[in-house]
Amino acid sequence: MWTFLKKLYHQLASPPHFYRLSPTFILWLAVPGYLLILYGTIAGLVYAPVDIVQGERFRMIYVHVPAAYLSMMAYMIMAIAGGIGLIWRLKLAHAVAASAAPIGMAFTFLALATGSIWGASTWGTWWEWADPRLMSELVLLFLFIGYMALRGAIDDTTRADKASAVLAMVGAVNIPIIHYSVEWWTSLHQGSTLLKEGGSGMQDTAQLYPLLAVIFGFTFAFGAMLLRRARTEVLIRERRTRWVKELVLSNEGDL
């Protein structure tokens, strides 16, 4: 088992093997991912019982929570992959970091937008400055924007990879500090629904299961999207190598 994993790791770290093996992984992530999202959204948005306090508005949770969680997950993947690329000089890690940024930014925006719409009807305000989560999420969006701007400004790919990796890691250290600095103000955001002391805050399984389904579904779908982007990124980065040329010639343009 261990030798198999080790072999898999080394194979995946090499761009041609990654390109060859990734469709299988994408398929195994995408199919359950989108099935879970399909079940979660239908069950959550249509069949789940209405919340006593929040009414129909609570259904926003089925998009908001996975998006918010994945925005942070995407940043951590970006920073860790950048760090791996910087330390072990793994070319593939940089390709993954570059691919995670736009997806992460999209999820961050989605989390902010859904949260804002929900806040407008529940808190009576579109935006609350004193809330740590809102501010952290906004700063996260800014960090993604800065990261992509830095990447875009540097023409040399190797330099862009390394410079943006340093920025991502500095940002990763700073995010918790930003969070607590805003928490110093009073918080308005409600506490975590799922992770509460003494079990889940969501007692009704008809509400809970769809939420878990979308969380896992979004995660799998994110993995599939990430690998899909990384695949294209690898192809662009390796465009001058022999294996890409052979690939193109053997497929006659049908990749």
């Binding site: 960090l143 924007i145 830095l150 540097i154 340093v166 600095s181």
Partner: peptide, 25 residues
């Protein structure tokens, strides 16, 4: 990070301002 880049000024603000938020707060 931005030294030697021609369009460094605006980029520098974009990189630094989010990071400097805790200090400002």
């Amino acid at each position: 990070l931005t030294v030697g880049l021609h369009r460094g000024t605006a980029l520098l603000s974009l990189l630094i301002l989010p990071l400097s938020m805790p200090v400002l707060i």
